[in-house]
């Protein structure tokens, strides 16, 4: 099967400081790839560069569009970049407050992407929004409440609903569970696993938590100091890490 996203030799520098360096990978339709590493390892920079939110210093990212054409993100106009972000991609931020409109209701948050795509039937928008709230385990009767009245976990689930409502083909997630309590995390991870399977999504998820990778991802990439030090099937990496840094990461998880 042909890849959905093709990343080659991708780097992003902050002035003299290295963000991520010479990263290559392929992502296939329906696949969930985890990028793990400590904070400062460059994993969020890689995610944002691959999602064209940061400009690559060198290297390339190519995306296989719904219509079959390959797009070079480097050559993408601002208009095309926004269209992609609206129609084919989704981005889930670590802090749900960054990804939500806090001053409008939960229903408007879910319906926004549909309206941007041209849906103009209020009743239908409500119906779909209610359905999605239910899907992410938020009581549909809270459709008119503002996100500020929700707990952190609910806000994150709302952001997931808002992102997935248009059934994007590719979703980027930046530590979606990092700021939450352990019990809340488990519920969201479970939800994500279910939705990814149901919708056949492809996703790239950044996390510092190996347990998250084990639960969700078939494939994992380990980053240190801006570079990928090991990549492979998640089980293999966790059970038989090759790189000393991965070994250290795995052992620190096992001992805690």
């Amino acid at each position: 099967m042909s890849a959905l996203l093709q990343v080659r030799g991708l780097s992003h520098n902050y002035g003299q400081r290295i963000g991520c360096q010479d990263v290559s990978f392929d992502l296939h339709p329906g696949e969930l790839l985890c990028i793990v590493g400590e904070s400062g390892s460059g994993k969020s920079t890689l995610l944002k560069t691959a999602a064209a939110q940061l400009t690559a210093s060198s290297g390339s990212v190519r995306y296989h569009q719904r219509d079959g054409a390959w797009l070079d993100l480097d050559e993408l106009s601002e208009a095309d970049r926004r269209r992609l972000a609206r129609e084919e991609w989704g981005f889930v931020t670590q802090n749900p407050r960054d990804g939500l409109r806090l001053n409008v209701s939960a229903g408007a948050n879910v319906a926004e992407r549909l309206m941007a795509l041209g849906m103009r039937n209020y009743g239908q928008l409500r119906e779909i929004a209610r359905g999605w709230l239910e899907r992410v385990e938020i009581d549909p009767s809270r459709i008119d409440d503002p996100p500020t009245a929700f707990s952190g976990g609910m806000q994150q689930r709302l952001q997931i609903a808002r992102t997935l409502v248009t059934q994007p083909r590719l979703v980027f997630m930046d530590e979606p569970t990092a700021g939450l309590d352990v019990s809340v995390q488990a519920r969201i991870l479970d939800l994500l696993r279910r939705l990814v399977n149901e919708l056949g999504l492809a996703a790239v998820m950044v996390t510092h938590d190996l347990a998250v990778a084990r639960l969700l991802a078939a494939r994992t990439m380990v980053m240190q100091g801006g570079r990928v030090v090991e990549t492979g099937l998640t089980d293999q990496i966790l059970d038989d890490p090759q790189h000393p840094y991965t070994q250290l990461l795995v052992s620190s998880v096992l001992t805690t």
Partner: peptide, 22 residues
Amino acid sequence: RTLHALADYGLMHVKLYEDIAQ
């Protein structure tokens, strides 16, 4: 200005949606 250039008017409909909801 960018939103106009791209005819990206979802935001305006969010406002109208919100009016009806409230």
